[in-house]
Every structure is written in C-alpha cells, then in structure tokens.
Nucleic acid binder design. Structure first.
Lengths: 230, 230
DNA sequence: TGACCTTTGTGATACAAAGCACACATGGAC
DNA sequence: GTCCATGTGTGCTTTGTATCACAAAGGTCA
C-alpha cells in the first residue's frame, strides 16, 4: 500500500479518538472548530424554532456549555456575522454556517455491509432530514445481494466503484465486520470517496485528503469507566 | 512529522463535540490520554492474537497511526511498563491498562428508550464481550412497557431509580427522542448514575462528576462535508 | 566483561487552542 | 445629536498537549 501519510485527525495536535481527518486540506481553520460548527447550526435551528430572531454569543454559549469567547473566535475564522451591541441574526447565521459546511445541499451516501448494523443504519430516520440520502447499499454475501432493504436493492461490492460514479455518491458509511473494514475502506477510497463514516472498531489507514470519522460506542464506554471510581 | 489518531471525541478543556466530562475528577491525567488508552488495549489485544509477546512503542504507533513518543508519554502517566531495549510485554501491558481503565471487571448498564434505536442497541452483540452487560430496559410508552425485547423486560421509567440500585447499574445508555433526552438524563443522574452514553442529538447539561459521551453520526457527517470540496 | 545496539522514560521545548479584556460598532433613550 | 448600554471582533495571555532529544537501562555477543 502506499505510504503516504495517513495521519488523521485534525489539523491539530488534538489526536482525538474516532476522528481522523487527513485533510491535507490547506484549510487553515482548525479541525476542532469545524467540528463545532454543526453544533452551532443545530442550536441556532432550535432557537429559531422557538421564535427568536437574534441571539448573542452568551446565550448560545449557555446552551452549548461553552464560553461566548470561543464561539465568537470560531465564527471569526469565517467572517463577521454579528452586529455589535445586538448579537447574531439567528436565521442568517444558521444559513451562513450551513453554507460554509456544505449543508445547503443534499449529499448522496452509500452503506456497505447489510448485516444487523447496516440495516439499522439504512432505516435510521435521522439522516434524510439533514440532507444525507442513502442511495445505494452493498454487501459481500451472495445471500444478501439482491434483497431489497428499506427500499434499497443490495448490490455486490464488486459494483461499488461503478455505482459510486453513476449515482454521484460522495460519502461512504462502513458497517461491515471489523475484519473486512480496511479492505472496504480501501475500495471506497479507490472509488474516489473522500469522506467515510466508519462503524467498525479499528483505526483505518487512509491516504491524505480522505476524512474518516469513527462511530464506536464501545470505545466511549471503555474510557468512561475510568472515571466511575476515583 | 505529523500524526494523528482518530476516533471519537474529545476532552475537556478542549470542548469538542460530543464529549462532556465534567469530571471534577482530581485525576491529573489529561482526558485525551484516557480516551486513547482503549485504543492501546484494542491494538495490544490484536497483537497478542497474532502471537507476539513483545511490542515496541514504534510498532504500536505504526498500527495506531501515532508517534511512538506520544504512546510512551501517555503510558508514563501511569507507571513504567516497558523494558528498555526490548519494548512492552503485550499481555501484561494490556492487563495493566485494562485494570487502569476498570475494564478488568464487568459493568451493568441500562438502555432507556426502546424505540428503533434502543432495540438496535440492546441487540448489538459488541457490548457483552467487552464486559458491558445490558441488564435492564426502560421506556415511557405504556404500549412498550411489559414487552420482552432481546430477553429484557421493558420497564416503566418511573422504576428507574429503584432498578438502578437493585441491579447495581453504573452506566446509562440514552436512546430516547431528543425532546425527552434531557429529562431522562436528569433522571439517570438523580438515580446516581455517573456515566452516560447519549445517542440523542443534544449537548445535555449534567452536574460535575458525571461523564457523558455522545454518539452522533449526523454531527460527524456534517463536519465531514466541509472537507469534500476545497 | 565490555562494546554496541535497541528502546524506554522524561525533562525541555514548541505549538495549538482556549480564555481574557478591551476598543469600537450599533441601537435606543432622551 | 449626545450619551449610554450592550455585545461583537480580536490581539494578547494562559493553558494544555504533542513532540523532541537524550540519558539511562536492558539485551547480545565476542
């Protein structure tokens, strides 16, 4: 395999579990900041639902349990969105942030691995409302290929590359058993995918420019137990 | 050289999405370090499966995509486990780390919210082998209370506190809809739970000394889209 | 035994991110 | 128009963490 760096995570010395961003991306914005933007979007969306037009960094900070200064600093990486003495326009800040993150459009995604976990993922109703459409499903098992699950025809992994191009899929969601995860991720990368959401319990190697985020509840539990005693 | 790790979330003074550890814990060990330990445990376990007795920080670092120095530094917070010129004994280091994390015992957990997501969680086969036993299930809906799901009798949330004590439950897993998540988390805290795994898309408020880890695939996707273009 | 090689453990250093504090816009009151 | 209250945007300071670099420790073999 090639030995370009695989580094992960962040542009930063953050080295946080389950996040791997190789963003060789020139983006001078720290990765941690990018990760907080969706939180702001979510909070703003809730705020506007409750009928508010304007919000201060203080209010937003109280809701998200962070300091107002950090929020202002984060936003300042992208421009000046607030009015002094007044605060931020809720709707317009939300819109600006969505645009920065690329959330003002829909994204086609695919799930690879149609076992128990993959089925749960494709039937999870939380993705579509946020613009993440699962448009293809794959599996390696011939007994599963050909089935229709949640309206998706399960296809053979050998067709991955072709379908990715055909359907303009930009994000891969990996739900295969851990022993096949690296090869599936390699296949996604070969197919040109740059963003991978990985449910398998491993730290995959990916080339620069590919971002991987891991979802690993066991890891989360295992680090919490440390704090239970003391 | 640059390096990185990946996986879930982060630490305290860092305010990273999905992690909130207030642990007023006196532990002088940085939270990020605690979060990396389970990665080491996992890698060591794989190593010993492949028949190796000894591993160097360099080998471990290669596998986990991080610098050897960071691994040695992390370990040094807890003691001296290696032999110079040789490396670490795989089995014994794994055992020591498990002990530090509290993984050398089993933990009783409960899932609150028996909707689609909760059912997926209780039937997920990845928890038990790691010592996390789900011993109770709760829901607020009277139609669901009384059902048996994956061998668990679903109980009313009103019985939460009682059952937590009766079954010595130490960890709560929250899979209720977001609009009820904060109240359920409050109830867990009232019941004496100190560790919460939260699947609901919000940043819950918890008192000092309670650790919350969030599992939020949508947030992960939303921060990845930023890097797709550029 | 001692020369040599490897790999640890750790003080010192570099750097990134968080928080502080204040200058300065802005809007409202009068 | 002037004054005041409010809350942004940001340079500077502090904090936290990753990395460097090297002394000391163990192993090996002549």
């Amino acid at each position: 395999m090639d030995q370009r760096a695989f580094w992960t995570c962040t542009a930063r010395p953050m080295t946080t579990p389950n996040i791997s961003n190789d963003s060789g991306s020139p983006s001078n914005v720290p990765e941690v900041v990018i990760q907080r933007l969706p939180l702001y979007v979510r909070a703003l969306s809730q705020f506007s639902d409750s009928g508010n037009n304007v919000i201060s960094s203080e209010q937003l900070g109280r809701r998200l349990q962070m300091t107002p200064a950090q929020i202002r600093k984060d936003l300042s990486y992208f421009g000046r969105f607030g009015k002094q003495g007044r605060g931020y326009n809720v709707a317009s800040l939300e819109q600006r942030l969505r645009s920065i993150l690329g959330l003002d459009r829909a994204w086609n995604t695919t799930v690879i691995g149609m076992g128990r976990l993959g089925r749960a993922v494709v039937s999870y109703p939380g993705f579509a409302p946020e613009g993440f459409n699962i448009v293809a499903a794959f599996d390696a098992d011939d007994d599963i290929v050909g089935q229709t699950i949640s309206g998706l025809d399960v296809q053979s992994i050998s067709a991955l590359s072709e379908i990715v191009k055909e359907k303009d899929i930009k994000i891969g969601i990996v739900t295969v058993p851990v022993e096949h995860a690296q090869e599936v991720i390699d296949a996604l990368v070969d197919a040109g995918i740059k963003s991978i959401l990985n449910y398998a319990p491993l730290s995959p190697k990916v080339p620069d420019g590919v971002t991987v985020r891991g979802i690993d509840p066991v890891l989360s539990l295992q680090s919490m137990t440390y704090y239970i005693n003391e």
